[in-house]
Amino acid sequence: MIRTFRTALAAAAIVLAGALPALAQESPTLKKIKASGEISIGHREASVPFAFMDQAGKPQGYSVDLCLKIVDEVKKELNLPNLKVKFVAINAQTRIPLIANGTIDLECGSTTSNLTRAKQVDFLPVTFITGSKLLVKKGSGIKSLADMNGKRASVSSGTTNEKAFLAEVEKRKIKVETVMVKDHPQAMLNLESGRVDAYASDDVLLYGMISTAKDPGQWEVVGEFFSYDPYSLMIPRNDSEYRLLATRTISDLMRSGEMASIYNKWFNPGPTKINMPLSSDLKKAFEIQALPH
């Protein structure tokens, strides 16, 4: 009896597996999404305007919009119009482990694509280009990194800015006391209380911080870029089918010009008045990455 039951179960499993779309079988992520009826999106909480919280506490932003476009595509691909979207708050330290261990299926924040990270996660096409600069109080006398000798600076631990900043300080042989912080709000608190003189981060995020600061007129972003940071959304590694689907979505957005309008919605001038028109570099990047079908 047990044996016949097992055989029947095996037969049923084979039939069911055959009935599923071929794609869902090959892609572990899509298979998981299909099985649970839910897609988990990791989002930053204060990366203005990439991923931040609205008044009601719902994540919103440029990266969040792009992620939702990918979710739409996943819905179509898996034929699951009622796919649930679960938002998971992440930070600079947790974003990579959570993608690597499968807690989140897609990360929408402000993550620099680099080769060390690519050992653990996969990056989609570049959706934003920025670089590291310093946020300082107006009238502080700091005009670039060279003026930081003997000063104190905050860096967010786990960011590419941290690495770039420490490397640059070493290269220039200047003495800067660095205080690690967990996120942008803590960095702002350190700046406001006068504990540090500067915060090193991506310039766009610094403008975002100014735009949401209590007194925006008090702050300025200074210096030349000391790192180059192309942003990408992250997905789990070793999943070519899912990667293809997501890349196609982004490429299509870039080709159709929808990417530029999503960009304008958040940056020009954007809900937080960040006021950064599409740069020629980023415009070129969109054109190059709009791969033909």
Partner: peptide, 12 residues
Amino acid sequence: TARSRQIEEYTF
């Protein structure tokens, strides 16, 4: 603990 985290962030 901070240093362990930092190593994780640099090398994963």
